[in-house]
Design a protein around this nucleic acid. Sequence first.
DNA 1: AAAAGTATTAAATAAATATTTAACAAACTT
DNA 2: AAGTTTGTTAAATATTTATTTAATACTTTT
Lengths: 184, 184
Amino acid sequence: MSESIESPKSKLEEAQNKVIGAIAETMDLYGVTPAAANLYATMYFKDQMTLDEMRTELDMSKPSMSTSVRKLQDIAMVKKTFTRGSRKHTYVAEKDFFRSFMAFYCQMWEREVKMNLDAIEEAQEDFINVIKDPNSTQDIVAEAKKYYDQLQESKTYYYWLNDLVESIRSGKIFEFLPKDEANK
Amino acid sequence: MSESIESPKSKLEEAQNKVIGAIAETMDLYGVTPAAANLYATMYFKDQMTLDEMRTELDMSKPSMSTSVRKLQDIAMVKKTFTRGSRKHTYVAEKDFFRSFMAFYCQMWEREVKMNLDAIEEAQEDFINVIKDPNSTQDIVAEAKKYYDQLQESKTYYYWLNDLVESIRSGKIFEFLPKDEANK
DNA sequence: AAAAGTATTAAATAAATATTTAACAAACTT
DNA sequence: AAGTTTGTTAAATATTTATTTAATACTTTT
């Protein structure tokens, strides 16, 4: 890999590719498709891109770019920009990871909290009905009570998760955990 | 669905199933297979289970239970227990969601930080070499500087994420965001 | 309003992942 | 130590998910 004959241009690209690879690899743990992960990582080094530039750069189909870019918009990692004079849509990558973090996790956690708390409320009602039901044996009642309490306990977690979301959304968390911490 | 003819026993199960469904559905957003998600949610209402009980309960193959339970152990959502007198291995679900949260996200975020910081360090070195290279044109140098700075900026985020992990691991975060918050 | 360019949706294909069946290995019992 | 039970690994199958090709709808320009 004789370094000396390599052009500055290609060294630049090589350096970018290292980061692109790392970002893409960690991103598909975030539930996005490989295409979307690659796309975001690629856009991370571009000012803005059109769908056609994307498909050329990644050598993939346009619909694939279209759906990927939409998915990335959903999790606020890509934004549409308005470029005068061009009919093509242009998109930019969110380069502030704090914002991506916020958008992604808050959305995910809110969904989780809502879905589980809803189910818990319903189930707790059911358990109460079982407890009150004269047809219930002692064993059944005891079980129902146990589960009711277990769910009650778990609500603490979901409330906490909601608080976490809230403190991220409001930025209050950065009072506790500052962003730069003297930049190490 | 005439409620009155339903036995307390089946009402109990129905209530559990509501919660099982919700947990399982949110869990496969956490990168576990449907089998593992269902398994965890089922175990959430059991004291302990053997592999054979799991396969009976979920009506799936034993190897599927074996791999699922291992995956769940990896993310610390299930623990092995030692039951005297039984040759079968027994497992219990971690019912404290705070612990699961900690284990899952800390592991995930540490991986992300390490992988990306490593790539960034390498890339930044490369960019410096391009900047120092006499063959580099002005444009190339400017680009290299731009990317170097962009990566430098992004490190702030990864350091912050590391701090977050640290404060979760140590429990310090609960000083800032208390667990029970008067239980609403 | 027509035509050209662009983006999106739908159906078909390709690729990846989860699950199962079958074979193997390990641990316990007698 | 041989046989039986339990758990794991490997190969094959099934299922799901991602991607592409082809068709459609929307925008903008003339």
